[in-house]
Nucleic acid binder design. Structure first.
Length: 269
DNA sequence: ATGGTCCCCTGACCGC
DNA sequence: TGCGGTCAGGGGACCA
């Protein structure tokens, strides 16, 4: 579930509550996530949280001794709970902070991850990531440069984390619709000007979703941890057979690189 | 190097 | 109301 906007909304929801607090304890009830949860995350116990950052879809809990990386996978969420709240079946990891708030990871499918990178080291999973789409320097040129020798579909380019991070399956379809580009168009056959439009579409669709998620921030503590941007209107995703909002033609669903892809055959070329 | 496929796991949903 | 099949938004690993 979590796409970049949800991860960013989670970060913004947690950050003000954790500022100035220290990690008091770690509880790992189920270590079998995407990778085994390492004991080394205990290296942060007793240390104040220096910063809570996001890189791609990873949340980075920064401590002087190192960084706890959290990825929410497809079904993960983080909530702030009182430490006395009994954990549910899928509440796999707790990060208990001083002052009586615990960050609790819930993840039914266990595709998420909790990892550790010692201070000064970049975790290998972060080492080769491309540009952040919300970085001010992200623009069409970043995509043009990456597209030069790619005969594959432009949608695959958008979802390649070495090119640009955080554009998940939903927003890849949404951004391509906004930019009126056919998801199967070979990346190198997309004109430079259209990449500028595509970059703007990516920024717009992600920013809109973050703005929608922001409305739930004040309820973050004790809520279900799920930002409410599901209510955000998606123009094409999940709407196969329904009319295109721009031209009325029925939207199509096709599988590209083993992922469901939604688009309008008339509007997107 | 790139693109396609598979898979980790549980839950939701659909048709019978 | 139960059962089996299908699908799912991430993303690394593997293969051609």
């Amino acid at each position: 579930m979590p796409e970049l906007p949800e991860v960013e909304t989670t970060r913004r929801g947690l950050a003000p509550h954790l500022a100035g607090r220290s990690l008091a304890a770690v509880a790992v009830r189920e270590a079998r996530l995407r990778w085994p949860v390492p004991d080394s995350i205990e290296g942060a116990i007793g240390r104040p949280l220096v910063d809570l950052e996001r890189r791609a879809k990873y949340l980075l809990f920064r401590f002087a001794t190192g960084t706890v990386l959290v990825h929410l996978g497809m079904s993960g969420s983080l909530r702030l709970v009182p430490p006395t709240l009994p954990p549910g079946r899928h509440d796999h990891v707790d990060l208990a902070f001083t002052g009586g708030l615990t960050v609790r990871l819930t993840d039914p499918r266990r595709f998420g991850a909790v990892l550790w990178a010692p201070a000064g080291a970049c975790h290998p999973l972060l080492a080769r990531l491309g540009i952040e789409p919300l970085d001010p320097t992200f623009d069409g040129q970043c995509l043009v440069a990456a597209a030069r020798r790619r005969p594959g579909p432009v949608k695959s380019l958008l979802m390649d984390a070495r090119v640009v991070v955080g554009v998940g399956n939903i927003y890849a379809s949404e951004a391509l619709f906004r930019a009126a580009i056919h998801p199967r168009r070979p990346a190198r056959r997309v004109a430079q000007a259209r990449y500028e439009g595509l970059a703007r579409a990516i920024v717009a669709v992600l920013s809109d979703a973050i703005a929608a998620g922001g409305t739930t921030l004040r309820d973050f503590v004790g809520g279900d941890g799920r930002p409410g941007y599901f209510e955000q209107a998606l123009a094409v995703y999940g709407r196969a057979g329904e009319p295109c909002l721009r031209c009325g033609a029925p939207l199509r669903r096709e599988v590209i690189a083993a992922r469901a892809t939604y688009f309008c055959v008339r509007c997107q070329r």
